[in-house]
Computed example of a mutant assay.
Amino acid sequence: MTTRPTDELITLRDWLRYAVSQFNAAGLHFGHGCDNAYDEAVWLILHTLHLPHDRLEPFLDARLTAAERLAVHHVLQQRIARRLPAAYLTNQAWLGEFSFYVDERVIVPRSYFANLLEEEFAPWIESPAQVRSALDLCTGSGCLAILMALTFPDAEVDAVDLSTDALAVAQRNIADYGLAAQVRPIHSDLFGALAGRRYDLIVSNPPYVTQAAMDALPQEYRHEPALALAAGADGLDIVRRILVEAATHLQPGGLLAVEVGHNRDLVETAFPELPLTWIDTAGGEEKIFIIQREQLPAAQAAAT
């Protein structure tokens, strides 16, 4: 008779060891919240057993029931066989201390803006009360729009995306945080549906993956919407449009902040004339640039 893992693995410690071994043997790729097999195994097992995600030690020697063993085995097999990111298996992703619903209609949130918003955009914004209107361009799951609303409680926040599927997820998250009166989801191709709207702050984590990087993506990333990742040969198709159009949607003195990942060299090569300020956060260095409205080409042209 064949022996199954669900027969031999009894305690949570047993299952954790087994999961790490299986993840490593399968050559899984990590990068959607965890960067190694151990952390991801802990996350998936604790979530499946409905245990606190930050409390492992008290439960390591707890014996799992037969039903719990089947549930844990199933989620581990899904992670391995389908190469699904853990966030899609749990329908949960975290930015700092904030949790968001996600599924395959949106990319898994992993923005460097979370650290910047935690610090209230200091020193570029002196006081949260200064921001009365804000825009999250390419909002996806709505996570950054929600963090902006929490950071700038006096601001009306627009959450824009081209994907109606993504906006449905964003709407769910906005409702979960009770922010429907403050955060407005808008279906728009960048600024296309925002005629006449101006903002004190625009943030964007747009698609910025180069074609070469898209071609080399691990299988886990191919479950994410390509629309939210791919941005042409040099990864700047969307960034170019944002820089051309942003000035007409910023208040005087307003700020534009754009996340471009590891593409700083590509950005500076494409826009050598722009006085971009590159930001270091706790999550990464020089992944976000900031520029004031008056420094953008359209604003400079209008002033001459």
Rank of each mutant, 00 (worst) to 15 (best):
L243M: 14
G178E: 11
L236R: 09
V239R: 05
E220D: 14
E220R: 04
H187Y: 11
R197Y: 05
A216V: 06
R240A: 12
E224D: 08
G232E: 12
I186H: 03
L201T: 03
L194Q: 12
A228C: 08
R197N: 07
L194G: 09
R184Q: 15
Q219Y: 11
H187Q: 14
G235W: 05
G192T: 10
A213Y: 01
V203Y: 00
L190H: 09
G178C: 08
S204L: 00
P225C: 06
E224I: 03
V239L: 13
D237P: 12
L190T: 03
Q211C: 01
I202A: 02
L243D: 10
L229I: 03
A228R: 08
P206V: 01
N205D: 04
E224F: 04
A213I: 03
V203P: 02
A230P: 00
A216M: 06
S204H: 00
L217W: 08
Y221Q: 04
A230S: 14
A228Y: 05
A195F: 04
A231H: 04
G178I: 07
D200Q: 13
R197A: 13
R241F: 06
G235N: 06
D215I: 00
A233D: 15
G178P: 10
A226I: 13
V203C: 12
A193T: 07
A230D: 10
S188N: 13
I202R: 01
G178K: 08
I242Y: 13
P207V: 01
Y199D: 10
E220Y: 08
A213K: 09
A181F: 09
A231C: 08
R197F: 00
R222T: 13
L227I: 09
R198S: 12
D189A: 14
V203T: 12
L229G: 06
S204R: 02
G196Y: 10
A180K: 12
L217P: 11
V183N: 07
D234C: 07
A193M: 11
R197G: 02
R222Q: 15
Y199C: 05
R198H: 12
P225I: 05
I242L: 14
G232D: 10
A216I: 05
A212F: 03
T210H: 02
D234T: 00
N205F: 00
Q211F: 00
A228E: 05
I186T: 12
M214C: 14
Y208V: 02
L190P: 11
R222M: 14
F191Q: 13
Y221V: 01
V203W: 02
D237S: 15
P206S: 01
I242E: 10
A233I: 09
R184S: 09
S204C: 15
I202M: 00
P207M: 01
P206C: 00
D234E: 15
D200W: 05
I186C: 13
N205C: 01
L243F: 14
Y208D: 00
R240V: 06
A212Y: 05
